[in-house]
Design a protein around this nucleic acid. Structure first.
Lengths: 186, 186
DNA sequence: TAGACTTTTCAGTAATTCCTGAAAGTCCAG
DNA sequence: CTGGACTTTCAGGAATTACTGAAAAGTCTA
C-alpha cells in the first residue's frame, strides 16, 4: 500500500466513529474507493490486517448501505468488490441511506406525536415544538428527495449557483408582489 | 413527565447513537427542546433519572455543540438551560457543527493528499479519485456556507421550490446557449 | 456426491464508551 | 476568611461495541 493510500485509509478509519460507522468499515470502503480494480475479501483482509470474518461483516454492512458493488471475475469463484465511479451517485446513495436510517424513524415518531391532544399548557407548548421540528424535517427531506433526482450536471450547476438563488427568489417575489398590488387595484 | 414528552425523549435517547451522540445527551436535549421554561441540572437529572455528574457532562457536550443556551434566574444561583426557539437557527448550528467535526478534517486531509505526485498508474488513479471526492465535498460545503446565510424565510422558500429550480437553470442555460450562438454568428 | 474452495455465523474476548459516586473545585454572602 | 450552594473532575465499574478464530454453511466442479 502506498503512503497515499495509507493516509487516506487511516483517516477513514479514524473518522469512522464520527460518521457512525466503525473503523473496519471505514477502512474497507476507503481502500475500495481508491483501488483501480475490484478487490476480493482476502485481498482486503490482507492489506488492512483484519481477520477474514471481520472483512466479511464489514462488506455486508457496506452492501446494506449500497455503497459497494459486488461482481465476479471470469474463472474465479471469489467475490470482488468495488465502489461506483460517479461521486455524485455515491453522494446520493449516502444521503438516501442516512435519511432512511436517521431521519425517517424520527419523522414517523413526530407524526404520531402530533395526533395527541394537549391538555395542559406545557403540553400544548411541547406539541407546538414537535410540529415545528416535524415541519422543518419534512420540508428539508422532501427537498432532498426532489433535488436528488436531478442529474449530476444540473446538481453541480445548482451548487455553484449557491446563495445567488436568492436573487432569483427576490425577483420572483417582486413579480408576485407587483401582481398582488395590481390585483388589489393599486 | 407526560406521555408525549416521555416518547419524544425516549426516541432521542435511542437514536442518539445513530446521530453520533449518546443516549444521555440526546435525552437531555430532547427534554430541553420541549420544555416551556429553562431547566437546571438537578431538574434534568431528576426527570431523566441520570446522575448529576452525567447531566453535567451532557450539558457541556451540548454547549460545545452550541445547541443549548445557558442563563440565570434572578435570586437563584443555579444555571438554567434552554434551547433556541427558531428551528431553522438550530438546524444551521447543527449543520455548521457537523461540518466542522465531520467534514473539515477530511477536506484538509484530501487537500494535503492532492499535493502528492503520482508515480505508478495505480497512484495516479487514486489521486484522481481523491480529487473527485475533494471537489464534491468542497462544492457542497461551500454551498451550505452560502445558503446558510440566507434568513429563515428565504430558506423555507428555497426549500419549497425544490427541484423546480431546475426550470430556472434550464431557462438560464437556454439564454446563454442562445447568446453563444449569436456570438458565433449563427 | 465428494471434496475443494469460498463465505457466513457465532461464541468468546478485547477494546471502547458510558455512567456513577465521591472528592475537588468555584463562587459568593455574611 | 468560612460555610454553603452549586458545578466539575475523575477513577473505577457497567454496558456496549468491535474483532477474532473456529466451525458451519453454501457453492461449484470433477
Amino acid at each position: 500500500m502506498t503512503a497515499l493510500e495509507q493516509r487516506f485509509v487511516q483517516h477513514f478509519g479514524e473518522m469512522g466513529s464520527r460518521w457512525g460507522i466503525n473503523r473496519t468499515v471505514g477502512q474497507i470502503y476507503a481502500l475500495l474507493y481508491l483501488s483501480d480494480r475490484p478487490l476480493n475479501a482476502d485481498e482486503i483482509a490482507e492489506r488492512l490486517g483484519f481477520s477474514r470474518s471481520n472483512v466479511s461483516t464489514g462488506l455486508k454492512e457496506l452492501e446494506s448501505w449500497q455503497l459497494v458493488r459486488l461482481q465476479h471475475q471470469t474463472g474465479d469463484r471469489k467475490e470482488y468488490f468495488s465502489t461506483p465511479d460517479d461521486v455524485w451517485a455515491i453522494f446520493r446513495t449516502l444521503v438516501a441511506e442516512k435519511r432512511k436510517r436517521e431521519v425517517d424513524p424520527t419523522l414517523s415518531m413526530l407524526r404520531e406525536a402530533m395526533l395527541e391532544t394537549p391538555v395542559t399548557s406545557a403540553e400544548s407548548h411541547a406539541l407546538q415544538r414537535i410540529r415545528a421540528m416535524h415541519d422543518l424535517i419534512e420540508l428539508t427531506s422532501r427537498w432532498f428527495d426532489d433535488v436528488q433526482r436531478l442529474d449530476s450536471r444540473t446538481l453541480t450547476q445548482l451548487m455553484r449557483l449557491g446563495s445567488k438563488v436568492q436573487r432569483i427568489l427576490a425577483a420572483r417575489n417582486r413579480l408576485s408582489q407587483a401582481g398582488n398590488r395590481n390585483a388589489k387595484g393599486h
